[in-house]
Design a binder for these strands. Sequence first.
RNA 1: GGAGGUGUGGCAGAGUGGUCGAAUGCACCGGUCUUGAAAACCGACGUACCGCAAGGUACCGGGGGUUCGAAUCCCUCCACCUCCGCCA
Length: 422
Amino acid sequence: MLTLTYLRERRESVISALAKRGLDATESVDRVLALDVERRVIQKELDDTLAESNTLSRQIGGLMREGKREEAEAVKTATSGLKTRSGELKEKMSALENEVHDLLSHLPNTPNDLVVAGNSDKDNELIESWGELPDLGNHKKPHWDIAKEKDLIDFDLGAKVTGAGFPFYKGKGAKLQRGLIRMFLDKADEAGYTEYIPPLMINEDSGFGTGQLPDKEGQMYHMKVDDLYMIPTAEVPLTNIYRNTLLNASDLPIKLCGYTPCFRREAGSYGKDVRGLNRLHQFDKVEIVQIQHPDKSAETLESMVDHVKGLLEELELPYRVLRLCAGDMGFTAAITYDFEVWSAAQEMWLEVSSVSGFETFQANRLKCRFKDAEGKNQLVHTLNGSALALPRIVAALLENHQDADGVKIPQALVPYLGFDRI
RNA sequence: GGAGGUGUGGCAGAGUGGUCGAAUGCACCGGUCUUGAAAACCGACGUACCGCAAGGUACCGGGGGUUCGAAUCCCUCCACCUCCGCCA
């Protein structure tokens, strides 16, 4: 959520930054600013009314102590008008505050200066490519065929027990999942991230904190009986650890990681996008999160991007890095680098990681601040990235490393599996 | 799930209707003293909003209520503790 102060001071630049997303925010922004002016007028009046009322109350207290009951009663009657007045003003205040909050919480983050304008993935910038696209010759099976032949993943069984998009992993397929998770966690650990095993359900406040609510309400599974949401990513519980906290500058950076299953309703998806492992309702992911000093957030983003590159290179998967254009970024992001790996049989790029900087957007929702060098409280910057999401990695591993009679496991992964071929 | 209890500033802990945003101790920060440190002493020491400022307002788990006035009384929700029940 953008801060009111920022909006007040930088009206033009907020509007032009949001225009890069293809959003004309002029009306909302001006409405917020107008309501804010109104709010301050009301607040002044309310504060004055309450101040007067407090003064009279103290007088009554004094008179009561001195036993001057009648005088006290007289002052009491004088306060009744103030009371109704402050009641009205309070109501107006909270109505104004609610409307401002509502408008603000529906405005997406302003894109970073590095981010280009654009409406769709066509406008994303290719930043870097790594690895050679494999020539599979006549062994070119899509991963769902390999998974079936080798009995690694059972989609039908998942559909029977739960529904489409909830596969079972079996035998070497299950071991592959476990091995990848361990490898990713070990790498995060080596890079200084503290591992957490977070809750898989979160409450409404947490959903708001990282920006899933109210914007992406329909994307999460909602347990209505207990009013809890299944996490769509470990980002939510991990980042919300620091909701409503005041940190010291020396606490920064805070580096967290965690493996969790992730749950997404993916309403409206269809066709080849959801074939096999391409898009699931439940999938496994290792997430890295950093809470950082604003001055260091750019270099931190770089380091997180480098971390993900390292993982993909160890897995010997050709990838490319895209800097998303403003219109393709998520609601909360100021800047996002997407990683895509080549799926050699499907002959398409699959998104396997998204590394984002949120600047103060989440921090403002979370109320996560730190005491800066001057002792003033300042919002932190939050960043996160997938390192990595499993299903599409598995898809690419199976497809890219296949040969005549199976799949070769990349060297770096062998110690985690105990076998080098599937 | 049932019964009872607790929830105050970074921590500990007073305060049970009226100058209480809140005693006191510890911690932290600044200073005096010291070659340096410790001790001792002095001072500062929550957050948010409004205001150029002086200052004002709100906040004692969250929300609501009673009252001229609430940390203090009432309702409700949440968290934690104890006992009972159930259970991986």
